[in-house]
């Protein structure tokens, strides 16, 4: 057991997966000698060799497409897309191929690949490096979309993603790659996918977030606790398939729900959560569901990004509003 950052936990999970399963291979741009631009694969090529951890040409479409071919052959490809801003050309391979290969061959072929990418804002990165477009992937049948929000969950969820027999898009909140430290036990234990984690108990309001926004949610919850308002904080972790039961169970107790995501509001995953509540939990609600999200604008360059990203104050204000309903 040792304390580490989220990106170190990613590295630890990758190393564990490479050690445990000879079919696991890691590739992408600069993941070899350089260890990845965020050092997520640091030291892995030296330890496991260039046949297990290797650099590809600078070609994202190819990276996703070759992962499909390798996965269909029974390898466990874990491919890195350097930034989420460069992931869009992979969508043909994810949507048309990875996510439907099992279905279209009636289980004859499958596609157990993991596509990792750092995502989200908050680190003053260049243009195209700060967006949160997880909802695009959550719309694709046959995919899993997983987002860790702490070092321990990064370790356990990444191991689960690599061991999963189906394709997983694994998005890493780069804003908290090094901002949070946590004890991680390298015991090879995977966390469950398709599971919403309750990270803070509370009875007054249900507060959902994922990725870097979970820290914002927790800070807001701790702030309100000083006034005796107890928020139950849920880490969504797997957006697709979504764990509706945990959401409904929590809201049935609290009667209030606030959803936080840094992605743009319209068509964001918060809309799906709100719709599920409207369909299955409307009569347990005491107040309207509130979303605290990025604006429906182009993500601004970094001098303005703090005005775009949901703040603790905005989350606190949204919770207070829901509490105004008796």
């Amino acid at each position: 057991m040792s304390e580490m950052t989220l990106v170190e936990a990613v590295n630890l999970a990758l190393a564990r997966a490479l050690a445990d399963d000879p079919e696991v291979v890691i590739f992408g741009e600069d993941v070899g000698v350089n260890g990845g631009v965020f050092r997520a694969t640091d030291g892995l090529q030296a330890r496991f060799g260039a046949e297990r951890v290797f650099d590809t040409p600078l070609a994202e479409t190819l990276i996703a497409g070759m992962a499909v071919g390798m996965a269909a052959q029974g390898l466990r490809p874990v491919a890195e897309i350097q930034f989420m801003g460069f992931i869009y050309s992979t969508i043909d391979h994810l949507l048309n191929h990875a996510a439907r290969l099992r279905n279209r061959t009636r289980g004859r072929l499958s596609c157990p690949l993991v596509l990792r990418a750092p995502y989200g804002g908050g680190i003053h990165a260049p243009e195209h490096h700060s967006e949160s477009t997880e909802a695009l992937f959550a719309h694709i049948p046959g995919l899993r979309v997983v987002i860790p929000s702490s070092p321990a969950r990064a370790y356990g969820l990444l191991l689960a993603a690599i061991r999963d027999p189906d394709p997983v898009v694994f998005l890493e909140p780069k804003r908290i790659y090094r901002a949070v430290r946590e004890e991680v036990d390298d015991d090879g234990t995977a966390l469950p996918l398709d599971h919403v984690f309750t990270v803070r108990d509370g009875s007054d309001v249900t507060l959902l977030g994922w990725g870097a926004m979970l820290q914002v949610a927790l800070t807001a919850a701790n702030q309100l606790a000083e006034e005796g308002i107890e928020a139950e904080v849920l880490d969504v972790a797997t957006l697709k398939p979504f764990d509706t039961a945990t959401l409904l169970e929590s809201v049935a107790r609290t009667g209030r729900c606030v959803i936080v995501h840094e992605a743009a509001q319209t068509g964001g995953f918060g809309a799906e959560i709100a719709a599920l509540l409207a369909e299955h939990g409307l009569l347990t609600l005491l107040a309207p569901v509130r979303r605290v999200t990025g604006y429906d604008t182009v993500m601004p360059l970094y001098r303005l990004e703090d005005h775009y990203l949901p703040s603790t104050a905005a989350v606190v204000a949204a919770i207070r509003e829901t509490l105004e309903y008796a």
């Binding site: 497409g65 070759m66 071919g69 052959q73 490809p77 043909d92």
Partner: peptide
């Protein structure tokens, strides 16, 4: 798309 899958298979 099949060309990218083919080089993945060939890599395997």
């Amino acid at each position: 798309s099949q060309y990218c899958h083919a080089v993945g298979v060939a890599t395997a």
